[in-house]
């Protein structure tokens, strides 16, 4: 019963929003490699969405290309979600390990990524009047992913419905706190760097004189 290959498990999880992740948990299945691949695809999807979108739907600012926002939008955001969820749910009697949270959440992102790629192709075929199709696909894909993500968190921690919502809200709060600390830390590092570089410049001038 349910002897599936890792790739087949992905399919099973995506097509069975309610039971899929439960089955996966039951069979202790899921591959970290595939999870990372999915996050990488998300990263590519974000870039493609920003740069290769059909011209009739808007112009991308193409004078410069900065990859940092795309990394933040995909990889950093996902990492913050996983770490945030893990830290919150460890305190809330969640059963999921960091590895499982990462795998299940990544699997849940698939409809969203697929939606981006489908819309990317459609944006080169459709005109503005037909943008409603793109909107519909976007809503379906995002909604599907949201349901999957909910189901994933519910299964991985073996939570009830209400507790899952609670955990997700707390996770988002945790993500904000983490990002805030990160920004704080970065600006601090910057200050320290400026301080050190100023001292270095000062000393180097003195030595020269």
């Amino acid at each position: 019963m349910m002897d599936l290959k890792p790739a087949e498990w992905v399919r099973h999880a995506v097509y069975h929003p309610v039971e899929g992740f439960e089955d996966m948990r039951w069979k202790k299945s899921g591959s970290l490699k595939i999870a990372f691949l999915i996050v990488f695809l998300l990263f590519l999807a974000q870039i493609a969405d920003g740069r290769l979108y059909g011209f009739q739907f808007g112009v991308a600012y193409d004078k410069t290309f900065n990859i940092i926002p795309y990394i933040v939008q995909s990889i950093v955001l996902f990492a913050a979600w996983v770490v945030g969820n893990w830290s919150v749910c460890t305190l809330l009697d969640g059963e999921g390990t960091m590895k499982n949270i990462c795998i299940y959440s990544a699997y849940a992102l698939i409809p969203y990524i697929v939606q981006i790629f489908i819309n990317l192709i459609l944006s080169h075929i459709l005109i503005r009047d037909e943008a409603v199709f793109i909107q519909a696909i976007s809503i379906i894909g995002t909604g599907w992913s949201a349901i999957l993500l909910f189901s994933a968190i519910k299964s991985v921690h073996q939570y009830s419905f209400g507790k899952t919502i609670f955990a997700i809200i707390l996770t988002i709060a945790a993500m904000f706190i983490m990002l805030f600390l990160l920004v704080l830390f970065m600006s601090l590092i910057q200050q320290v760097y400026i301080f050190i570089s100023t001292i270095y410049t000062e000393i180097s001038y003195r030595i020269r004189v």
Partner: peptide, 8 residues
């Protein structure tokens, strides 16, 4: 993009 849309 507006003109492009019509041309496309």
């Amino acid at each position: 993009p507006k003109i492009y849309n019509k041309a496309f």
